[in-house]
Amino acid sequence: MTGTDALLLALGALAVGSGALAVATRHLVRAGLYLVLCLAAVAGMYLVLTAELVAWVQVLIYVGAVVVLLLFAVMLTRAPIGASTDLDRPGWPAALIGGGTGLGLAALLVDAYRWSSVPLPTAGSAERIGEQIFGSWVLPFEVLSVLLLAALVGAIILSRPDIGRSPVGPAGGSGADETPAATPTETPTGTSTEGRRSR
């Protein structure tokens, strides 16, 4: 067992432990923060596995963007701050299926590799990955840009109800229901603020 193996074992134990806490904790915000720890540990494993570019992209996109989006959603859906008891379904089937999947795959991979050793290649640079992306994989790369644009437009249309509903005839009724629902709520708040001002 070399230093590389010890580092991989430590980072792997950290990733699995924080991942287990992320799916088991009763605090909604802590689940996101344990996910940060798990993603950072996986990024460290990428660094040990000589995949530097993937490690930094993981830190940038996952830890920087995806987790921030998740925490924004936690705040926007008014999640409870403390521990909440209704986050989970009573789930022995989930434990059975999840444990079976994880342990079954682990047994399969242990049986395939059996503590064999492989020399690590020299540390990868972004230049070689860039040559591959823009050489052999340039068509999937361009298709991914189209997919990102489609996801962007889809997310905007989904999150703005006034775009999607207005041209549809029967759904316009529900859209018309919402505007009177919004105006009476504004008037009480307006009166309350006026009350505050009068105070």
Partner: peptide, 28 residues
């Protein structure tokens, strides 16, 4: 480098993710 260590880590992480998808009620 023993490749079995990251492979087993990935398998356990996948099992944990499957468990979480089936167990959790909150969509986030």
């Amino acid at each position: 480098m023993r490749p079995v260590i990251p492979y087993v880590t990935a398998a356990l992480l996948f099992g944990l993710g499957t468990y979480g998808v089936l167990r959790r009620r909150n969509a986030i």
